[in-house]
Design a protein around this nucleic acid. Structure first.
Lengths: 224, 224
DNA sequence: ACAAGATATTTGATGCATCTTTTTTGAACT
DNA sequence: AGTTCAAAAAAGATGCATCAAATATCTTGT
């Protein structure tokens, strides 16, 4: 019985979608930025159809919004919405960590440890983008180890929605973005579901502080 | 600060998407059914572009799959995937019920009671589609009462993915689909978060039994 | 300088043609 | 009857023209 997955076959639509996702997550777009289908078509050197496909998909992901039928924007992230996303992540990533702790292999743990090692180097080098990318890779490994593709899809979308805030919060966050990864890995080694779940929840809460601070500062700027 | 929502403005694309969603949830498609963009364009009496838009969106929702670049199908739902969806729903709808219990107004509770009353009539009349629709309305009310739009979006997508199984499981499920709704409402009246969460979890587990039985029977048929 | 209204330009939605790839059908052979 | 191969048909992706609605700009008046 084949699993319920979207086939990853290559076409312009997917390539554009991937590029726009990367740009969102890397903070290359800012809240309020306007996207125009014809502009992007010109930048990518292709017709409007695959751009339009990718844009509609991102709107479905709630990573971009149609402020009106002709006005496509990068949305801001309200404090309320961020808190909701964080509460959802706590529940879902907690579930993923719990399940991953039950089934993780030595190979899985090696991958996680390699990610941590590279992330130490990124922090050392002040490489904000690399660090944010590795942080995401770590979080995305847990549902993969746990064998939870549906949850993986949900998490991917939540990451897109937080995108413009993540990489900017990374350096201010410093070690807060990585310190709790170690106890997660230790709990996986011991097959300790409870400890894994608690550690990832701590990571989400601690890692969320600089994001909340950034959102609050953004709200203050808007109120001026 | 505007909330992060997709604006609901009217166009053919959205109309088609809504119609296909309804068809999925009402079990008018069966797992394995093939969709063809040109066929649907002919049925809806419009060009392929808005059909294609809607199809790509449903693929993004993981409600339909591209088995290959030219073969669009309604996916089956494996037992493993259904169990995962159920585990995610337990976490998220538990969170929604818990939060809804804190903030529910008398008006909210009246809406839920009206849904229950109508569902009693649907069960009495053996109206499978009406009953499934009201069951969904009940579950979707909780994130709305709780003020959790992100969670609402996740739940909508999960419902689409279970779509072809839900309405068929409704009559076999009988009162199992509705009995636990009453304690949920009672807990909301008392603002009892713990009880609301436990009751919705019970509802999901009990209501999931006929769906699991259906999936197991489907797997048996495929093994023949 | 600001506001209101008119005009011009822009922008997304949709229809449709074309291309390439995939699927289906038919013929031949065993 | 079943298999294999070739040919025909079909199907999604993409390019692009057109339309209508929305946005931006300009002009006029206060």
């Amino acid at each position: 019985m084949p699993e319920f997955t979207t086939l990853e076959h290559e076409n312009l639509n997917k390539a554009v979608y991937g590029a726009l996702c990367d740009a969102l997550i890397q903070g290359r777009f800012q809240p309020g930025d306007r996207l125009k289908i014809r502009d992007l078509a010109e930048q990518f050197g292709i017709s409007v159809t695959p751009i339009r496909d990718a844009i509609l998909r991102l709107a479905n992901d709630e990573a971009i919004i149609f402020r009106s039928p002709r006005d496509i924007r990068i949305p801001d992230l309200s404090e309320g919405r961020y808190r909701e996303i964080r509460a959802i992540r706590i529940k879902l990533e907690g579930l993923a960590a719990e399940t991953a702790a039950q089934v993780a292999t030595s190979a899985d743990i090696e991958v996680l440890e390699r990610i941590l090692c590279e992330n130490e180097k990124a922090i050392e080098a002040g490489d904000r983008l690399k660090g944010a990318e590795l942080n995401q890779a770590f979080h995305f490994m847990l549902p993969q180890i746990a064998g939870l593709p549906v949850l993986n899809g949900i998490l991917r979308r939540l990451w897109l929605q937080m995108g413009p805030h993540i990489s900017d919060a990374y350096l201010p966050g410093g070690r807060a973005m990585i310190d709790h990864h170690y106890p997660v890995v230790e709990a996986l080694k011991r097959h300790d579901s409870g400890a894994a779940s608690m550690a990832i929840v701590d990571d989400i809460l601690l890692g969320g502080k600089p994001i909340l601070e950034r959102i609050e500062r953004g709200a203050e700027r808007k109120a001026l």
